[in-house]
Design a protein around this nucleic acid. Structure first.
Lengths: 138, 138
DNA sequence: CCTGCTATTGTAAGTAGTTACAATAGCAAA
DNA sequence: TTTGCTATTGTAACTACTTACAATAGCAGG
């Protein structure tokens, strides 16, 4: 299932463990972003010995390796999801509704950004906060 | 010094306290954004009775009232600054360099955003993560 | 200048996330 | 299959931040 990922880790001198595999499995099954505590709760049901510390360490490790994505959502919370196609989050600060934006649309905005500021926007971690159409009415 | 702010709070049914005044003063003197812990350290030197809980509560209160601004910077940390002219943060995820972007430039981007997604981007809280020109070379 | 209402504070306990360190267990190589 | 190196884990203590509750203290009105 995750043979390619295991191969990648070995090439980089890292190891695959039941804990890491479980976190990947949980994120994959969820099909959406999860908070560390949600992941910990699910993980412990399957692998009771697993601790919070390991969950947090595993999440930052997998994220550094580019195998999962970390995204900041409202109130500074960090959530994780399986790395897939590039997309981004648009979060309503009033009702919390989240919407995904596809990468292609943002490309043109990034280009304008770069020519103006010199900064290259990190296309994997962008999250926008704003008001969704419904909440703009209030 | 903060007469206008005090007046505003009273009109809304809230009170001014030495603790709130001190947080405002510290942010104003700093002239840049500060983390809650930096504010707490400075505050306690002047008002030893002041506790962490009060600092955190004061920061979210002042922020809700629009008197200070909260901004997420790298690694999910929240920082605060005195509300002034609209501006935004652009943070390099490699070296941590921060740059301010003026509101006017972003206006045009927001407009494109809104017509595409229907979401109105929150112009006071936008923070971009990316790579600064220097770090792009590595 | 008092008085009373209640917003705000400090206290203390709780939750989320991080870190040093010694024990454990992947995995590469024999 | 066995062995040894060291990446990874669990433990336990620590930091940042939050919250319920009773005591305190702004401030509006008399």
């Amino acid at each position: 299932m995750f043979d390619q990922i295991i191969e990648t880790l070995h090439q980089r001198g890292f190891r695959m463990t039941p804990q890491r595999l479980l976190v990947l499995q949980i994120l994959k099954d969820a099909g959406r972003h999860l908070a560390p505590q949600e992941i910990f709760a699910q993980a412990q049901r399957i692998l009771p010995a697993m601790t919070e510390a390991t969950v947090y360490r595993t999440l930052s490790f997998l994220s550094e390796q580019g195998l999962i994505l970390a995204a900041h959502i409202g109130n500074g919370q960090l959530v994780y999801e399986i790395a897939g196609h590039d997309h981004h989050h648009l979060i309503c600060r009033a009702c919390g509704a989240t919407k995904q934006i596809d990468h292609q649309f943002l490309e043109s905005l990034y280009q304008q950004f770069r020519s103006k500021t010199g900064y290259q926007i990190d296309s994997l971690h962008v999250t926008f906060f704003g008001l969704c159409p419904d909440c703009q009415k209030n």
